[in-house]
C-alpha cells in the first residue's frame, strides 16, 4: 500500500526495474543452482531405471550406503546431546568467555574439512599423539569407522546448538522457574517445558546435522583411507566411481544424495513455516 505514494518517475523505474532484477536473479540461480540440480537426476535416469538399479545393486555401493547410515546414526544422537547441553549453557548463563564459547562451537564452520581430517590424523594416526597407545591396544581410529564418525561429528557439531540457542533465549527462563516453583524435577522441566518449546528449532538443527553427516566429504576423505567396500561412505563412493570412469555408478549415488538434499530442503521449508506460524500467532 505505501508504494502507492511513489511518484510517476519512480513507478516508471520500477516498471522495468522489477522484471529486469528478477530476470537477472533467476538466470544466475539457474546457472549455478537449478541446472546442476536437474542435471544430477538427468544423468542418473536418462537411460531409464535399469542402469541406475544395476549401479545401486553393486555390493560396494550397498556397503557405502550402510556405512553412511551407520555414521549418521551415531553422529546425530551425539551432536543432539551436545547441542542441547551447549545451547542451555549459553542461553541460560551469563559468564565471562561466553562469546568465546560460542565462537569455539562455530569453529568447525570456519576450518577446512581437510584440516579437520589432518588434525585427527595427527592425533589418532600412526605418528599422532595417541598413535602408539592405540596401536598397543590394537584399536584403529584412522582408516576405520571411529575416525569417520569423529570427523563427521566435528564438521556437523555446531548445527543443533546454533538453532536451539536463539529459541531458548527467546523463551526466557521464566517458564522453567515457574515449573520449578510447581515442584518439577530437572528432567520433568526438560521434557514438559523446554522440549515442547524448542522442538521445531531442535528438529531443524537435527535435519541440518543429518544432511551434513550423510554428505560430508573432505574430512571423511582424509581419515577414511578410501577402501572400497570397507571405509567408503556414499560421497566418497561418488568421487571414487567418478575418478574410475564409472560415471553411471557415480551419478546413481549422487542422485540418492541429491534426493536427500531435496528432502532436507522440503522438510526445512515445512519447519520454517511451523516456526513462523508460531511466531505470528504468538503476537
Amino acid at each position: 500500500m505505501p508504494t502507492n505514494g511513489i511518484n510517476v518517475e519512480n513507478r516508471a523505474t520500477q516498471n522495468w526495474g522489477k522484471p529486469l532484477l528478477i530476470g537477472i536473479a533467476l538466470i544466475y540461480m539457474a546457472a549455478i543452482l537449478l541446472v546442476p540440480a536437474i542435471a544430477v537426476f538427468y544423468e542418473a535416469f536418462h537411460r531409464g531405471f535399469g542402469p541406475f538399479l544395476e549401479a545401486v545393486g553393486h555390493r560396494e555401493f550397498q556397503n557405502a550406503i550402510r556405512l553412511t547410515l551407520i555414521t549418521a546414526a551415531i553422529t546425530v544422537p551425539l551432536n543432539l546431546v551436545f547441542g542441547l547441553c551447549a545451547a542451555w549453557v549459553i542461553a541460560r548463563n551469563q559468564f565471562r568467555g561466553r562469546t568465546l564459547l560460542v565462537s569455539i562451537i562455530d569453529l568447525p564452520f570456519s576450518i577446512s574439512p581437510v584440516v579437520v581430517g589432518l588434525m585427527l590424523v595427527l592425533l589418532y594416526g600412526r605418528i599422532g599423539w595417541l598413535g602408539p597407545f592405540l596401536q598397543s591396544i590394537n584399536f584403529r581410529v584412522i582408516f576405520s569407522l571411529p575416525g569417520i564418525v569423529i570427523a563427521t561429528v566435528i564438521v556437523s557439531l555446531p548445527f543443533v546448538a546454533r538453532e536451539v540457542i536463539p529459541v531458548l533465549e527467546d523463551m526466557g527462563p521464566e517458564q522453567e522457574e515457574a515449573a520449578r516453583t510447581l515442584g518439577a524435577q530437572d528432567w520433568q522441566i526438560f521434557w514438559r517445558v523446554i522440549l515442547p518449546h524448542i522442538r521445531w528449532g531442535l528438529l531443524y538443527g537435527l535435519l541440518l546435522t543429518n544432511a551434513r553427516a550423510m554428505g560430508e566429504f573432505g574430512a571423511v576423505a582424509v581419515v577414511s583411507g578410501n577402501l572400497a567396500g570397507r571405509t567408503q561412505t556414499l560421497p566418497i563412493f561418488v568421487e571414487h566411481a567418478y575418478k574410475n570412469y564409472q560415471t553411471q555408478a557415480a551419478f546413481g549415488a549422487a542422485a540418492i544424495l541429491a534426493l536427500l538434499a531435496v528432502v532436507t530442503l522440503i522438510l526445512k521449508e515445512i519447519l520454517e513455516r511451523r516456526t513462523q506460524h508460531k511466531r505470528s500467532s504468538a503476537h
Partner: peptide, 20 residues
C-alpha cells in the same frame, strides 16, 4: 526460489563437484 537458495547447504559437496 527462496527454498532453492539453500541447496548448496543441503547438497553434499561431492555431488556438487560431480554435477558441476
Amino acid at each position: 526460489i527462496d527454498a532453492v537458495v539453500d541447496l548448496p547447504f543441503a547438497l553434499p559437496t561431492a555431488v556438487a563437484g560431480l554435477v558441476l
